[in-house]
Simulated scan of single mutants.
Amino acid sequence: MTEKTTAPQQGESLDLEWLVNGLLDVPGVTGALIAAQDGLTVAYTRRTEYSGKGLTDETAQRIASVISGLYALTNGVANLAGGSGRDLELGLLKHKDWSLFVVSAGTGVPAGTPLPLRHDPSTVECTLGVIVTPQADEGVIGFEMKQLVRSMDRHLRTSTRRRESGTADGQ
């Protein structure tokens, strides 16, 4: 039998929620999360009953996939233009009811992390996404995200995946 790799459950070995929770204090922010380039959630602001802000587990997982995909798309376009996704200063999706801000949040995973062939653990990208109301001040949101990314770099490392025995390869 082959083995499947899975991410540790939230809070098991990597508790970085404290990094993003402060963003909920910024007017207009309804949720924030950090995702690895493979779309896995690293940390997010959890929804609480009393605040009405934050994300549910399911929403965080979906948004992690979305922001990772946006980052990959931006990286592809940047490469075509002779740049790099690491040059991404800010990506923005605007909807009539919300906006989603995306920035690169740092690089690196621990040695030994299972990765596709030819991937160097020191080059795995992470992304920060923030969801806001239409009334949010975009300049303030962008500034707060950049400040957070600058301060969290030394804390941000994607955790090593564990192996589950008895599962199909890659499924």
Rank of each mutant, 00 (worst) to 15 (best):
M1N: 06
T2H: 12
T2G: 05
T2L: 02
T6W: 02
P8R: 13
P8V: 00
E12V: 06
S13M: 02
S13H: 12
L14V: 04
D15C: 01
L16T: 04
E17Q: 11
V20A: 02
N21E: 09
G22I: 00
G22S: 08
L23E: 00
L24I: 03
V26N: 03
G28D: 02
G28Y: 01
V29R: 03
V29N: 03
G31W: 04
G31L: 12
L33W: 09
L33T: 08
A35Q: 14
G39T: 06
L40P: 01
L40N: 13
L40Y: 15
L40F: 15
T41Y: 12
V42S: 09
A43S: 13
A43F: 14
Y44G: 08
T45Q: 05
R46E: 13
R46C: 04
R47W: 05
G54Q: 07
L55S: 11
Q61C: 08
I63M: 15
I63K: 04
A64T: 10
A64H: 05
S65Q: 15
V66E: 09
S68A: 14
S68C: 07
G69M: 05
G69F: 04
Y71I: 03
L73N: 10
V77S: 10
V77A: 14
A78N: 04
L80M: 10
A81N: 11
A81F: 03
G82K: 10
L88D: 05
L90C: 11
K94E: 15
K96L: 12
K96C: 03
D97T: 14
D97K: 10
T107G: 06
V109F: 03
P110V: 03
A111F: 12
G112K: 02
G112M: 07
P114F: 12
L115Y: 12
P116W: 05
L117W: 02
L117K: 15
P121W: 07
S122W: 07
V124A: 07
C126E: 07
C126F: 07
T127K: 14
T127Q: 14
L128V: 07
G129S: 09
V130A: 11
I131E: 12
I131P: 01
P134Q: 07
P134F: 05
P134G: 01
Q135L: 07
Q135F: 13
A136K: 13
E138Y: 04
E138H: 12
V140Q: 14
I141E: 01
L148F: 07
V149G: 09
S151W: 00
R154A: 10
R154Y: 08
L156V: 09
S159A: 13
T160S: 10
R161E: 10
E164D: 03
E164G: 00
S165C: 00
T167D: 01
T167N: 06
A168D: 01
D169Q: 09
G170Q: 01
G170P: 02
